[in-house]
Design a protein around this nucleic acid. Structure first.
Lengths: 244, 244
DNA sequence: GTTCTACACGAACGCCGTTCGTGTCAAGTC
DNA sequence: GACTTGACACGAACGGCGTTCGTGTAGAAC
């Protein structure tokens, strides 16, 4: 026995009574879009099956006809996000290291644009079509710069790992509705904590309280790590004795 | 009205009916130890409040008298794990880069020794006593090697980030009760997938199918990233024109 | 008009973190 | 010794989660 006929909009006259044109049929694309909307609005934890269903005027159970489980949905959402990556049109051997940096910066920017979605990317080998596009571009640039095959291959893991882990760490500051003022206060507090540590056991931390807490929340810290990585890669890429 | 008097072991005669000698009183240390036992046995997801309580012959609710919430418990467990770090006795300026590597290797090894606990460390600024000890040692070594303050300070974040993120990625292979044979098969499958990609759109990935999937599960991949990082740091540490 | 099939979806299962109220023990007080 | 007190152990319950199941219906096929 049906519990009670639900109200259906658009009833009355001879109008073909669909409950919406079969809800635009609820397909993978609309589900992924809805899930991404939820993430953008309220973060990764808010992306529950029920909540995504709600976004489409239905329940969580309805999604399972189109998506195997929540993990697969997350994978689809992530590849959608990776699709926003801006990649160089063509590798330029003279600018390879700058092009690598641009790609990694774009990764960070894209992830940062979707709340804490970076957390969902951690520990996930990205094999979606858009991820492959990114990997291909990254390798192309590095190979054009003369990096050996194995270096380029490993770096193709290492660089996104850095972008993702950094984006995740930064999303923690950005979330929890912390205002920039709060953040500044929190950083100041941490600096004071470091500076006040007993200098017999923690002389270096106490001495570097300033540098340790510098650049949090800005680009400087990220650029530092990026520079370290690219310099390290460059040092592995030079052909033996490149000087004339 | 009590729902029904519970059975208590050790009743009958004049024996002092304790329910165990007040369970050794259930303190923070025993709870942290129990939680770590659960993680070691069945991974981070198994570390639920109920399960940890069970490990101590009680329920999950009993833990809240000693620990604010699950997150605080995890923080305590993590600092306990970090306490296992092996640190150099004294910084040696001639071996600074090797000492840095040894510390980061130790981080990876310690994390790998506790299933997927690395996942819990991601995005967490470690400020426990043991974490501070590790940071102090790391900075000491880098400073002895002549790295500038700001470089040492940023690297003090960057290096543990690498160790943690790598340990997490590796824990995924190690878990899910994948046998080494399965893993080898999975890697072979991925290599074949890369190699079979359309060469018009993915020429580099297809060409590097071998290198891309090499060294998974071994130390080689980890050592590569470590080498890149330390080389990059070294390139930032040289005093201007160190040549005679 | 009838049959068939795909799928929307409410309800339910077994988890989770956490809170609440009760009950019990050990120590302090007369 | 009787009583009070306070710390804390802990069963039960709340709301939320991912996922499964069974039902019912809309639309296509015949």
């Amino acid at each position: 026995m049906p519990p009670a006929p639900r109200f259906r909009p658009g009833g009355l006259a001879g109008e073909p009574r669909r409950r919406a044109p079969r809800r635009a049929s609820l397909n993978r694309d609309s589900i992924v879009a809805a899930a991404l909307r939820v993430v953008d609005a309220d973060g990764l934890d808010a992306m529950t099956m029920r909540r995504v269903g709600q976004e489409l005027d239905t329940g969580g159970a309805s999604l399972y006809a189109h998506v195997a489980n929540k993990d697969e949905l997350l994978e689809l959402v992530i590849d959608q996000v990776i699709g926003e990556l801006e990649l160089p049109d063509a590798p330029d051997p003279d600018r390879w290291s700058e092009q690598v940096k641009e790609i990694v910066r774009s990764m960070r920017a894209v992830l940062a644009g979707h709340k804490d979605i970076a957390r969902g990317c951690l520990g996930r080998i990205p094999l979606g079509p858009n991820a492959l596009r990114g990997s291909e571009a990254l390798i192309a640039v590095m190979k054009s710069g003369g990096l050996p095959d194995q270096v380029a291959a490993y770096a193709c893991d290492l660089l996104p790992l850095y972008a993702t882990a950094t984006a995740y760490e930064e999303s923690l500051y950005a979330s929890a509705q912390i205002t920039p003022t709060d953040l500044a206060g929190y950083i100041a507090e941490m600096r004071a904590y470091f500076a006040a540590l007993p200098t017999d056991r923690f002389p270096h931390i106490a001495a570097l309280a300033g540098p340790l807490t510098a650049g949090s929340g800005g680009d400087e810290r990220f650029e530092f790590g990026l520079d370290v990585l690219v310099r390290g890669l460059a040092s592995l890429g030079l052909r033996p004795d490149p000087r004339p």
